[in-house]
Write a protein that binds this DNA or RNA. Structure first.
Lengths: 138, 138
DNA sequence: AAAATTAACTTGCTTTTTGCAAGTTAATTT
DNA sequence: AAATTAACTTGCAAAAAGCAAGTTAATTTT
């Protein structure tokens, strides 16, 4: 696995030591916003993560306490990945990334629309989503 | 240079295509919060970025419109790197990373203290910092 | 005014990470 | 019983990161 070392005690740097890559936050996104919870569901995302990289990221997200592996309620062949509270608390980071991308990068129509809604009541929507995620996670 | 391609039209993915790595946001941080503006100042940061990686990231941050290169006011030997508005608008992302790291990762005492202050009036402090950065940037 | 230093890179090389295709094993479905 | 699905692992090539040393122009020191 990609080794986990802290480059400094700066909070930004420390956060990036864990989630500063192209894939980790997409897995968090898929669980948080796209209702995905299994390896194969993550694999099917449009961004096409490589199988070994996905396995690696899942291991490290679990090791850092962002996700947990659980028994899948419907099948023993599946593993149910879910966010921990630490993982759910990444929501505000994702929200800010969405707002920034929405302002400056070419994104889908639906993302633009969602950005507009978000912008009007960022704090409220974030709070509400966070509460829903935490409630559903119990 | 690291090539820039959009993996999808998802805003989170698109943002990560640009700043989803271990170094880009540290350069933004150094300009935004640590008063650094030159190659050698970036090199001296505690996280110890490699010289070629720094050169690469500066090129790509400029190519994506997050920073600009300007004449240094004091010396022709130096280059003055500054944030664009697009770069300044990454402040909320950095703020959320700080808050998350502050809550879940081992960070410096001063970062913990700053996090507490931030938490009390996130929106207000962000707004004020943003205004100060944009004003200073004119 | 020559020599040393500084600033911003570049180059070459090794190590690490990513990407891709194929293979494995257990559980589930046909 | 055979085929499929789910979650990985393995092997290998390509890309990126890390490290040390070198280059060039500007600036400072002697």
């Amino acid at each position: 696995m990609k080794q986990l070392k802290q480059r400094s005690d700066c909070p930004i740097s420390s956060a990036l030591d864990i989630i500063g890559d192209k894939w980790s936050l997409l897995i968090v996104r898929d669980i948080m916003m796209n209702g995905k919870n299994t390896y194969n569901e993550f694999l099917k995302s449009v961004e096409k993560i490589a199988t070994n990289v996905l396995a690696d990221r899942l291991t490290m997200l679990e090791a850092t306490g962002i996700i947990t592996k659980e028994e899948h309620p419907e099948s023993k062949a599946k593993i149910y990945y879910k966010l921990t509270e630490k993982g759910i608390d990444l929501l505000p980071v994702l929200i800010e990334l969405i707002l920034w991308a929405d302002e400056y990068l070419p994104v889908s129509k639906s993302a633009v629309a969602y950005g507009k809604v978000l912008k009007k009541d960022k704090a409220g929507i974030t709070k509400q989503m966070m509460a829903a995620l935490k409630k559903a996670n119990k």
